[in-house]
Design a binder for these strands. Structure first.
Lengths: 360, 360
DNA sequence: TTGTATGCGTTATCAC
DNA sequence: GTGATAACGCATACAA
């Protein structure tokens, strides 16, 4: 259990190089840290040769231990199967590269236990900061970070009781634009479909913004539908019920004088998915029950713009995911360097992508 | 640049705990490493209290430095936007958890430079081993690993000139099953669509297996189409040309006596996508040019089973992704522990998922 | 310009 | 049972 790994041969150390070059460790260290000016050309050449011969690579762990900083930052991702997360990650990686950090990517896979465990792990590895796309359960599991602990930046959602910078979508603006779009397209029943939202700030914000936006359009019938994506049975049940209501809405239209053909080809019901995973669940279910023609029954709009949305012709609000990740690292960088401003929120604008799913 | 981070307060060290508990560092270390039996109950209690009071957490870096092993393994992923990679990752994470490793996830984002850079970085962090889903360019960039370097396990594809374990799909069997499926469904023109495959072993194997399988069915017209997903213009051009050929095939059928309606509703041309990204590109392009009805023109089958495949009704070969990741870590674990068997290949079977895209 | 000595936080060796 | 003390690989204050 505690024996050194036998798989790989021992690597050369700074002492080996010093010996090989016939000098002291200090000069090697200087060479490594770019203090070239203080080295005589000959010594420098000998060191270069020794390093080459021994294929020496400085041990970052030892380096970090000595320096008190290891240039490591943690990136805690709630769910990598969500394209949103991967896109944010790309921004994070780019910024890390630019700023000289190495991101330690941890995937909680929607498990609270994992989240806690990784946070703990990151702490023991002494990362200089963390970017966390939290599951959003309780601040308790996030205790080690933020405020008194290690610098942290939240992504997409804030966590109650935890003071830290946050960067994410301008939900208010995004939802307002999306809602107006649906109303202008003539949908007069708009159902906002969202996962349980009490504990996840971004969902809560979107839901609230939706109802606020609707006050502008008294002729529109709007409501919130909560779906739980985790439980397949419950999900199927909810979606089936939702589907029945769409039926009823269509029937209602028919009895109010429209021809059934109008009702079939001109849906008046629109589903507003609070995020990509919800949209995918909705689309899969509708597709399964009604075939490829389901878009004639009901419109769909989603926040998040995954690759399949174009394929399926879904209107979306695209988030500036790359920028979100990039900004998050920049914020964290400032914190690590000791900036002491109070917690900031950085809200980035979304972009409406109109596609067939909300055309009439 | 080299000053300690000012963002977070200094953490307690083992010496702090020793002082707080009024004892020596050795006892603390013993406590941490579970050598409880050699500690008197009182000392043990004092240590426990001190740790609690100081919120002490051992520094893994220092630990690794001293022990000569840090329980870190690198996971180098070629492309996280490919759901395949994320699924493999889940298996890797699970196995790491079970075996007590911490995976350092590195995302090359299809950039050779990144691949090389991360490999270098992982080396300097002294990971005990690496799992690499290589870009497949040259063995040169992978020099530090495998054979003489640190233990490595390849995923999905092997790299010429690099001796290391490999775990991936049984491409031969998978392609054979898929091809037979298409032929049995009555498609007599089957076009295998693949990215440039010379340098990527899994693609090469699939392409070869396809032609080998076709020798069983002389009545079927099969060929390989190469598409380059990276370059949008070139891709559009290739797909447009491909599309024109489908037109020609349909026209050809019409002149051979079938009614045009038959030709429209009963496609005889099938596209066999070598992987998920290719399938998505094909579907997007066809959808864009012919609308949601494109499946009446041409059939589609793909290796890889991303979430959207069910939504779009695409027949696929699902890879045992989770198992691939899990096995890879198990292999690596054996290597790290010093097992010296020669390089092994582990080929796991795929599963045919029949959907509407290949029905008639 | 170059080298020596000390310490980062931990574990291992050896005394007591 | 318990506790000094010496490494681990590196960086740095200081000396030469």
């Amino acid at each position: 259990m505690n024996t050194p790994p036998s798989g790989a041969p021992r690597r050369a150390t700074i002492s080996d190089v010093a010996r090989e070059a016939g000098t002291g460790k200090t000069s090697i260290s200087r060479y490594l840290n770019g203090e070239l000016s203080v080295l005589s050309p000959q010594l420098r050449a000998r060191i270069e040769a020794a390093i080459e011969r021994l294929d020496y690579q400085p041990n970052q762990m030892a380096r970090g231990l000595k320096r008190g900083r290891n240039r490591l930052i943690g990136m805690l991702v709630a769910d990598l199967t969500n394209p949103y997360s991967v896109e944010v990650l790309q921004g994070v990686e780019a910024a890390c590269h630019a700023l000289g950090y190495m991101p330690l990517i941890c995937h909680a896979a929607n498990e609270v236990d994992m989240e806690r465990r990784f946070l703990q792990l990151l702490t023991t590895y002494r990362v200089e900061g963390v970017i966390v796309n939290a599951l959003g359960v309780s601040e308790e599991t996030l205790r080690p970070v933020g405020g008194g602990g290690i610098p942290a930046v939240l992504v997409d959602r804030s966590v109650e009781g935890l003071v830290a910078d946050m960067v994410g979508l301008d939900n208010e603006a995004a939802v307002t634009v999306a809602t107006r779009h649906l109303v202008e397209r003539g949908f007069d029943r708009v159902w906002f479909v969202v996962q349980p939202f009490e504990r996840v700030s971004s969902r809560r914000l979107r839901e609230a913004a939706f109802h606020r936006a609707l006050t502008q359009y008294p002729q529109v019938n709007g409501r919130t539908v909560v779906v739980e994506l985790g439980d397949a049975d419950e999900l199927a049940q909810t979606l089936t019920a939702l589907d029945a209501e769409i039926d009823a809405a269509i029937a209602n239209r028919e009895t109010s004088g429209e021809t059934s053909e109008d009702a079939a080809t001109l849906p008046r019901v629109a589903l507003f998915a609070a995020n990509g995973p919800v949209a995918l669940a909705l689309a899969r279910h509708l597709n399964q029950r009604h075939g490829a023609d389901w878009q004639k029954r009901v419109a769909l709009l989603s926040i998040d713009d995954p690759e399949w949305a174009e394929l399926a012709g879904i209107t979306t609000i695209r988030q500036p995911t790359y920028d979100i990740g990039y900004r998050a690292v920049e914020f964290l960088h400032e914190r690590i360097d000791g900036a002491q401003a109070s917690a900031r929120d950085c809200l980035l604008p979304g972009e409406l992508i109109e596609r067939a799913s909300t055309a009439r």
